[in-house]
Design a protein around this nucleic acid. Sequence first.
DNA 1: GTGAAAGCGCTAACAG
DNA 2: CTGTTAGCGCTTTCAC
Lengths: 352, 352
Amino acid sequence: MAGRRRGRVTIGDVAREADASVTTVSRVLNDVTTVDPALAHRVRRAIADLGYRPSATAQGLARGHSGTLGVLVPDLANPHFSDLVKAFTATVRASGARVLVMDSDEAPAVERDLAEDLLRYADGLLLCAPRMPRTDLAALAGRGAPLLVANRRVPGLALHTVGVDFHQGVLAVCGHLAQLGHRRVVYLAGPEGSWANRERLRALAGAEAFGLRATVLACGSTTDDGYAVAERALAAEGTALVAYNDFVALGLLSRLAELGVRVPDDISLTGFDEIDLARFSSPPLTTVAVPRSGLGRAAALALVRLMSGDTDGDDGDVDGEAGGGTGCDQGEAASEALPVELHVRGSTSAPS
Amino acid sequence: MAGRRRGRVTIGDVAREADASVTTVSRVLNDVTTVDPALAHRVRRAIADLGYRPSATAQGLARGHSGTLGVLVPDLANPHFSDLVKAFTATVRASGARVLVMDSDEAPAVERDLAEDLLRYADGLLLCAPRMPRTDLAALAGRGAPLLVANRRVPGLALHTVGVDFHQGVLAVCGHLAQLGHRRVVYLAGPEGSWANRERLRALAGAEAFGLRATVLACGSTTDDGYAVAERALAAEGTALVAYNDFVALGLLSRLAELGVRVPDDISLTGFDEIDLARFSSPPLTTVAVPRSGLGRAAALALVRLMSGDTDGDDGDVDGEAGGGTGCDQGEAASEALPVELHVRGSTSAPS
DNA sequence: GTGAAAGCGCTAACAG
DNA sequence: CTGTTAGCGCTTTCAC
C-alpha cells in the first residue's frame, strides 16, 4: 500500500506515520514501560504498514554493542567445526544475538588478523582450535572483548576455555586395546601443531605405563591421508592402528580392504570423533564420540555469560607479555572439559 | 605502553594522540587523497600505539552499509551447505565483506523470520535451498536489499538465482544405467518439498522416454534413512537403486552388505553429491560430483555484483504481492546453473 | 592539504 | 505517559 520512499524506512518515518515521537516508537520497539495502548497500537500499525525494520547498525551504535558474536574456525568443511558452529549459532540466537563466521582455512598465520577483524564487528569472540602463537592469543584477550577459546588450553594464560577431553578419549581407546591384549599400536598422527593432536600424544605416553607402546607416524586428518599412510602403517608392525580421527580411519580401512588386510582379524583399527558414517562402515568403527554440538552449545553459553559479566573490569587486565606462572586457574578464567565416550564396535578385537 | 582508557579507543583518541583532526585520521584509515606523509605517519603511529581499530558499527552507520552479507542455510551440518558457506565466506571476504550465518534447521516455517532478521544486519542475503512459500520469497525480494537464491528456481518470480544442475545430473545417472542395460530402477527420494528432489523427479520422468522406469520410494537424506529403507528398496524390484544422495547410498550399502546383497553384482547403486567418502566405500560409489564450493563462490560473486549495481534503483521494484506473470526472465534477474559431472565407479554394472 | 561541522538511525537520559 | 535533546563513532561535504 504505502509507496516505499527511496532508501530504507527509518524510525522517523514510522513516528510521522503514527503521529508519535521517535522515542515512543523506540519504546514499543523494545517493549519498554507502559506506552498508552492506543498509541502503541498506532505505532505497531505504522510499523507494519511501512514494513519497517530497525537498523541493527544504528541500534548497535546507540546501544554500544552490536548483538553479534564472532566465531573463527580452521575449516568449516570439517564436520567437527560445522557441527560446532551450527550448535553455536542456534544457542547464541536463542539469547538474542547473531553470529559472524570466518574460516582461517587451516592457516595459522591469518588467524590473528581474522580474529582482530571479527572483533571490530562483534561483542565477543569464539576461537576454535586456534593454532596461533600464545602471544597473539594474549594480545587478543587483552583487547577487552569477551574471548573464549575452544579446544586449546594455553599453559600460563588466563583464558576462558571450553574443550573436549581428548586426553581421556585416547586413554579410553588405549585401555580398551590393552585389555584386549594389544601391546604395540601405531598412532597415525593429526595436524602437527594442534592441541588436539598434542593431547592424543600425551595420552599415548600415559598409556605406556600400562604396557602399551605406540609408534607414531605422521599422517594428517583426512580420508586421503589415511588411505595414503596405510602401507607405512602396516610396516610399522603394531597389532592395532589408532587413527587421529574417523576420516583417517576410514581411509585406512578402505586401503586395507584393497590390500586384503582384514579388520579386525589381521589388525585392529580405531577412529576418533564418531562421525555419522562410523557405524556404517564394514566393519563398523570403534571410535570415541565427542560432543560436537555440546561443545558449540557450551561455548555459546559460556560466551554469553562472559558478556553479561565484566567486559572491561579493573583486575583481569591480562598482559600479553608477562604471562607469569600464576597457572591458568586464577579464578578469573573458567575452563570446561566435556566428557567423551568410547564406542566399541567391530573394528577392534584381540590381536591374532 | 599507552594505558588503555576505559571502553574502546575511538578515532577521537587517535586524533588527539596524533595531534590531528578526526577527519585526517579517517582519511589515512581509508587511505584517501594525499595526506601529508609526515602527518599520516604520526597518525599511523598513534593508531598502532593505541591499538585502535575502527568500529565496524559506526562505519556502517556513517557509510550507509554494514559490509556484511547474510546467508541462510537449512542445515550447516550438511556438507553440502558447510562447503558452500565456506567458499562463500572466503570469496565474500576477498571483496572486503563479512558473513553472518543462520541455520533454519530444516524448518521452513522459520526461514522467513530468520531472513528478515538477517536483513537488518546485512547489505545482501543469500538464501540456500529455501523451502519457504513463494509469497515470502517475493516479500523478501521486495525489501530492497540484494537477494540471491541458491538451488531453487521459482517460476514466475524475478529472482536472482544460482544453482546446481541437478536435472542434468540425474539424467546422466539414468543414461549411464540405461546404457548398462537397466530398465527398472528404484529412486530413494529426498526431502519432500525440496527443489533438489523435485528436479531429480523431473529428470527421472524424462528418463522414461528412454525406456527407464523408476519406482519412487520416500526415504530422506541421511545415512540412517538409507539404511532403514534398504529392505523396502529391495522389495521394489528394480535392478538398480538410485539414491537421493551419497549419504542415503552409503546407508543402503551398509545395510545391503549386512543382508548379503552384493553391489553391484546383485544390484547396482548410485549416489549423488560426491562426498569425500564416496570413493572410499566398498565398492566405491558411482555418483555425481556437484560443485559445492563452486556454488558458494558463484553465489558470492553474484551477490557482490548485485550490490555494486542498483540497490534501490527506480525500475526493479519487485512488488511482493503483485508477482505478475511476467516470467522470470525480465532481464532484471540473472540465473546461473552450474554443471555437474557423473563419476562412474564400482557400484554400478550391467544387471544380472 | 587540513579541519569544522553536519549527519547516518537509533537509544537514553531528562524534562514535561 | 510522552516528547526533546544529546550523543554512539565514523564519514563526508564544505570551507579554509
